[in-house]
């Protein structure tokens, strides 16, 4: 089976029509479904948060069969993720896409779990510690995209589960949990 780095690719990755946006509605819907699954799967294992349409993205080109997705196809597949709430466009021109392989709500739950696991139910932690500290090593939180983290924190703040307080610079931002 073909691999992309550490990522195991499904068989149909070598099926040439997979790389041509299908014009027939039923066929296209199934094609889009398969692409959505593959993109989320890949981003999750590779901890990829942002796909830039104009840059090279390993999934969108298959060197073995010499096929690659057109811009239109890329946008169609990512738009399908956006409409399902599994991705968000980062700009109006649809050039960059934020992939939510966990939904924001799921990220929030992971944060709570992180606080509990590390005895931080009433403690304080900086945002940088969450993203790259030793405590988060080995969890999905490690290396999390800043935008996604902020969205999850805001959601928890609204629920009264924590307070975000600002320091002198963005690096100093901290979180006080009150789970």
């Amino acid at each position: 089976m073909q691999k992309l780095g550490e990522f195991k690719l499904p068989h149909f990755f070598n099926y040439p029509p997979y790389f041509t946006l299908q014009p027939v509605r039923d066929t296209r819907e199934k094609q889009i479904q398969l692409w959505k699954e593959l993109i989320l799967d890949y981003c999750k294992t590779q901890k990829t948060f942002v796909i830039a349409l104009e840059e090279e993205f390993p999934l969108f080109t298959n060197h073995v069969i010499e096929r690659s997705l057109t811009h239109e196809a890329r946008e169609a597949f990512l738009s399908a993720l956006v409409s399902e709430g599994r991705a968000e466009w980062m700009d109006k021109g649809h050039r960059k896409c934020l992939i939510l392989w966990h939904r924001i709500q799921d990220w929030a739950d992971i944060l709570i779990q992180f606080a509990k696991d590390n005895g931080l139910e009433d403690g304080v932690v900086t945002i940088e510690e969450i993203r790259s500290g030793t405590e988060s090593q080995g969890t999905d939180l490690h290396g999390i995209d800043r935008t996604i983290l902020n969205r999850a924190l805001k959601l928890l703040e609204q629920k009264g589960k924590l307070v975000v307080f600002k320091g002198t610079s963005t690096d100093d931002e901290g979180v006080k949990f009150s789970v």
């Binding site: 499904p10 099926y15 029509p17 041509t20 299908q22 014009p23 094609q31």
Partner: peptide, 20 residues
């Protein structure tokens, strides 16, 4: 069937999408 458009031309394949 489904189509494959590439620099090699316009070709048709059996539709696998429904099978996966």
């Amino acid at each position: 069937l489904c189509r494959d458009i590439s620099p090699d031309g316009f070709r048709f394949y059996i539709n696998l999408f429904a099978e996966i």
